[in-house]
Amino acid sequence: MDFNSLDISENSRVLTQLGLKYFLADPEPPKPKKTSSPSTPNDQNASFILPKNIKLKLSKLLRPAYTLWIYAGFTYDLSIEEVTDRKRLIRSIVHQVHDKLNWPQGSITFWPVFNFKNDNLAPDIQLFQYGLEQIKPIYIFCFGKDAFKTLFPDQDFEIKKFYYGSYLVQALPDFDQLLPDNRELKNLVWQTLKKYTPQ
């Protein structure tokens, strides 16, 4: 099984149940919210200053989950409404993991490892650590060298298991490397995810 040619635009219900509606769904007008979530990173900490349109979306993802998925471009993807090829690819992967591997609903969430600083993306390990402490995943799936080097600055990137403190991290190719249709890497990701299917 790979991620080729799957159209899942009709599956917004599944994505919502997975807690990924605001990141993966087609663009929709944001719903106003008068008060910020108490679980949103503290604005008084300079490292946690986030654009307002991102804070609401993050509040939907900050919850306990079986797996935490990270990649360097996540914050950028949250900041735009356009449904890009990368978003479509991630949507497809998430759907197939749920549908074909029968992962329980709510078993996947995302959290930033990069943040905007002076209009550019830069590693933000404190923001990542904040989310990690709230999400408490069993496994972390780290897609791409840039995200990996944020967690492991002194190690070489390889497609294998690492430990970040007590957390098992599975390093995987960057989502962009899977585009437009790198079937070899897609299959590598798929076979790896199969190994982590909850029993």
Rank of each mutant, 00 (worst) to 15 (best):
D2N: 13
E10Q: 08
S12I: 13
L15H: 02
L15R: 05
L18P: 01
A25V: 00
E28P: 00
K31L: 12
K34G: 14
T35P: 06
N45Q: 06
F48Q: 11
I54D: 12
K55W: 04
L56A: 09
K57E: 07
K57N: 09
L58C: 11
S59I: 07
K60W: 04
L61D: 10
W69Y: 01
A72F: 04
G73Y: 08
D77A: 12
S79M: 10
R86H: 09
R86F: 11
R86S: 05
V97Y: 00
L101W: 00
P104C: 01
P104L: 03
Q105H: 04
G106N: 07
T109W: 15
F110L: 12
W111S: 13
F114W: 13
F116P: 10
K117G: 01
N120C: 06
L121C: 13
P123M: 07
D124P: 10
Q126E: 15
G131D: 14
I138S: 15
F141C: 05
C142H: 07
G144E: 11
F148Y: 02
T150A: 10
F152G: 11
L168P: 05
V169I: 06
P173F: 00
D174N: 12
Q177G: 03
L179F: 12
N182D: 13
L188C: 07
W190T: 02
W190G: 04
Q191A: 01
